[in-house]
């Protein structure tokens, strides 16, 4: 933690940490504690005063069927985004690590989407699925499927899942490829001498050896799906049609900034904070220790 050889105490270190501490206090700790405090308040209808109500906001959420629906929707959404992007990335990385020459070439072609903002990913996909003009809509029509994500909630969900997963494939691919390339060649060769084919080697050796990466990526992808996909939903579906794509982070924004239900929105923020902290703790504790080798 601290260097064995270090400088003696002086005012200097305080000056050095001051900028970061000031920003942390003003823009992180103060707002987070404000959110917590606000979650115990209910504002009156005219915004003139507020009343301290303890856990009433949470109780309202607990009984609110819309919130329950948003919660499960978020769970399904994030699991599907994580599964789709990680599965696709695993397949690609599994084949890419077989290529001796050209692995870097494929990597260069596959990492582009990482650089693209979620909202842009949404714009690209919504263009391809445009109900009247989109290229994929055109092909789907020939298959007998009518696509209109403005009317069909299931199709809207499919669209945001595809856009969110597409953007994340690049990230997962990089981590899987790096993990696979760090497996010693001798292990793979030994299995090959024993007569294991490429598929067998992948499932019995490579896949178990990279399981720490899989767990790490699972947490990262869940956090990504929970928060960073806000841009996609905000730009592409606005949580609709109806509320078929309203996930938790979009609901916090919508109830707070559009609906001006400050207490309810703050209570939702607090629940999200607890979820993020839980995921971070899982990542630090569970994932690093209990993975089977």
């Amino acid at each position: 933690m601290l260097k064995r050889v270090h400088f003696p105490s002086s005012p200097l270190p305080y000056l050095l940490v001051a900028p970061q501490l000031a920003i942390t206090l003003i823009f992180f700790i103060w707002p987070a504690s404000q959110a917590m405090y606000q979650s115990f308040l209910i504002e009156d209808a005219f915004g003139l005063g507020s009343e301290f109500v303890w856990f009433e906001n949470f109780q309202v959420l607990w009984e609110d069927s819309h919130y329950h629906a948003a919660f499960w929707r978020t769970a399904v959404f994030s699991v599907l985004v994580a599964a789709l992007s990680m599965g696709f990335a695993l397949i690609l990385a599994g084949f890419a690590q077989r290529v001796v020459r050209g692995a870097m070439f494929y990597r260069t072609l596959l990492i582009w989407p990482y650089a693209i903002a979620p909202v842009l990913a949404g714009a690209l996909w919504v263009f391809m699925f445009n109900p009247t003009l989109g290229i994929l809509t055109y092909f789907l029509k020939h298959l007998g499927i009518t696509w209109n994500h403005y009317l069909n909630g299931g199709q809207a969900m499919t669209l945001v899942i595809l856009a969110a997963a597409w953007k994340q494939v690049a990230y997962n691919f990089l981590f899987y490829l790096a993990a696979m390339q760090s497996i010693p060649n001798s292990v793979i060769e030994a299995a090959a001498i024993d007569g294991a084919g490429p598929g067998r080697r992948f499932w019995t050796i490579i896949f178990p050896l990279i399981s720490p990466t899989t767990f790490f990526l699972l947490v990262i992808n869940m956090v990504y799906a929970f928060f960073e996909t806000f841009g996609i939903i905000h730009a592409v579906t606005q949580g609709g049609p109806g509320s078929s794509t309203t996930i938790l982070v979009y609901k916090v924004f919508n109830d707070g900034f559009v609906g001006l239900d400050l207490g309810g929105s703050a209570a939702q923020s607090v629940i999200l904070m607890v979820l993020v902290i839980a995921m971070t703790v899982v990542q630090f504790r569970y994932v690093e220790r209990k993975v089977e080798y």
Partner: peptide
């Protein structure tokens, strides 16, 4: 100081947008 900085690791801007907006 270390722990105060560490806490920010856990809080994405999306979960505290309203109060942060007020501060700004």
């Amino acid at each position: 100081c270390f722990w105060m900085i560490f806490i920010t690791l856990m809080l994405p801007v999306e979960v505290r947008i309203l109060p942060t907006f007020e501060v700004v």
